[in-house]
Design a protein around this nucleic acid. Structure first.
Lengths: 201, 201
DNA sequence: GTCTATATTAAGATAGAC
DNA sequence: GTCTATCTTAATATAGAC
C-alpha cells in the first residue's frame, strides 16, 4: 500500500494471499480472533505458519486484511460507488445477519481497536470517516432533490444513520430475533422523510 | 446467591468490596482490562490477590461488578426511575465523554461478551433489554401525550435511540471531537418530533 | 466472653503468552 | 520451554451475634 513492489506480485502469491484471507475469515468468524492460533489457519491453508507471516507481518495485520476484504465484498455486492447508501444500509444489515461470525468479529475489532496505538486503529478511523462521508454525500444529494428532510445537516443525519447501523448490530448480537434491516429502513424512510409543511399550530 | 449467608456481610467486607470495585474501575479505565493483571488492583487496594478472589470469584466477575456500579451511578446521577429517558440520553453522553476510559471499557466489553458462554453475556443481555424497555415506555408515554411522532411503534424508536447512542459512542472513540450529546439531541427532538399534518401534495 | 461466619492470606496448580 | 497471570485450596485472624 505504501511502497509499490518493484516487480509486482507473482500470480501464485496473489492467489495464496487470497486463499489465506479467505481461510482466516472462516476461522476467525467461527472460532474468534483472540482465542485462535494462526497455526489453525496455516493448517487449513496447507502451509507453514511462517508462510503466513511472510504475507502478513503480524496477526493483527491479517485481521485488518480480513476486514478490508469484507468491506470490498460488501461494496461489490451492493453495486458500485458512493451513491444510494441510505437505501443500501438495510441490505447490508440483512447480509450481516446472514454472517453472524464475521459480523461479530467486526464489532469486537472495531471496539477493541480504538486505542490510538492499536494496529487496526488507523483502518477503523479511516473507515468510519469514509462511511460517514459517503452517507453524507448521498444524503446531501437527496436533500437537494427534495426527497429528504433538510432541517438537519447532512453530516448529522449521516452520523446518526451509521451509528444506528452499528448500534442495532450490537443489540442484534444479544438478540438474534431483532430485524436490523427493518428498523434501519424505518429510520431511513420514515424518520428521514421530509416533514410536511405545517397547516396549523 | 444459591445459599444465603447465615450471618450476612460484615461492615468491613462491604466497605472493602466497594473499595475494590472503585480501584478496579480506575485501573481498568486507565490501563484496560485484558492487559491488566489483578496484581495491580490488589496492590493499589493494599491487599493480596487472593483477597480479590475471595470477593469476586473471577476477573470477569469483577469486571461485571465494575460495569454494574457504573450503571448504578449513571442512574443515580440522572435522577430516579425510568421516566424522561429520551431527554436524559444526551446528558448520559456528555457524562460518558468526560470519562473516556470507562466508556471505552464498556464498549469493548459489550462487543466482546456477545458470545453466549461469555461470563458477562447475561449482564449485557439483560441490560440491553432493560434500557430499550425503559426507553420504549418513556416514548410511548410521550406519544400518548402527543409530543412525539406516532407513525412508528415506540419499541422501534426506542431501539433506534439506544442504537444511535451506542453507535455514536463508537464513532466518538475514533474521533473525540464529535459531540455525541448534540447529535443525540437532534435525534430526540427533531427526528422524533411529531410531523405536522400535510397541507398539500 | 465464647463461638462461628466472614475476612484475609499463604502456597501452589493450571493455563496461556511469548 | 520459561514465565506470568488466573484461579484453587486450605489455613489463620477477626468481626460481631448471642
Amino acid at each position: 500500500m505504501l511502497v509499490p513492489p518493484s516487480r509486482g506480485r507473482y500470480a501464485k502469491g496473489v492467489e495464496r494471499r487470497e486463499q489465506i484471507i479467505q481461510t482466516a475469515t472462516d476461522v476467525f468468524a467461527t472460532e474468534g480472533f483472540e482465542g485462535t492460533a494462526l497455526r489453525r489457519v496455516a493448517e487449513l491453508v496447507g502451509v507453514r505458519e511462517s508462510t503466513l507471516f511472510h504475507y502478513f507481518g503480524t496477526k493483527q495485520e491479517l485481521l485488518t486484511a480480513v476486514l478490508e476484504e469484507r468491506d470490498r465484498r460488501a461494496h461489490r455486492d451492493l453495486g458500485g460507488e458512493g451513491g444510494d447508501m441510505v437505501s443500501a444500509l438495510p441490505a447490508v444489515a440483512r447480509s450481516n445477519a446472514a454472517q453472524p461470525g464475521l459480523t461479530t468479529l467486526y464489532a469486537v475489532a472495531s471496539a477493541t481497536a480504538s486505542a490510538t496505538d492499536h494496529a487496526s486503529h488507523e483502518y477503523f478511523h479511516n473507515r468510519f470517516k469514509a462511511v460517514v462521508d459517503n452517507a453524507a454525500r448521498d444524503i446531501a444529494a437527496r436533500q437537494e432533490a427534495g426527497t429528504l428532510r433538510t432541517d438537519l445537516p447532512a453530516v448529522v443525519l449521516a452520523r446518526l444513520l451509521v451509528a444506528a447501523s452499528d448500534g442495532l448490530q450490537l443489540q442484534w448480537m444479544y438478540d438474534k430475533t431483532l430485524d436490523m434491516a427493518r428498523d434501519l429502513d424505518s429510520l431511513a424512510t420514515t424518520l428521514f422523510a421530509r416533514p410536511a409543511v405545517p397547516n396549523n399550530q
